[in-house]
């Protein structure tokens, strides 16, 4: 799964720490999501999208395994 959290963070001038605190997760979790190492739960994905005031599809893009970008 691809995501644009880093882009939205930059647009809102947010650090990973601040975003993590606001979403009640660890900074490592935000970092792992940004790097594509961890796919968040549906609940956390909605929280992130809602935090930036956009729809979930605007932040996350589903790529089936083996699909090239």
């Amino acid at each position: 799964m691809k995501n644009k959290i880093k882009v939205y963070r930059a647009m809102h001038d947010l650090t990973q720490e601040k975003l993590a605190d606001d979403l009640s997760v660890s900074r490592q979790t935000i970092l792992a999501i940004e790097k594509g190492k961890y796919d968040p739960s549906l609940e956390l994905a909605f929280k992130i999208a809602r935090y930036f005031g956009v729809t979930i599809e605007e932040v996350f893009t589903y790529l089936p395994e083996g699909t090239a970008e």
Partner: peptide, 11 residues
């Protein structure tokens, strides 16, 4: 390690 526990970032 697989789920990014010790990942580092430029931030």
């Amino acid at each position: 390690r697989k789920l990014g526990e010790w990942e580092t970032d430029e931030e």
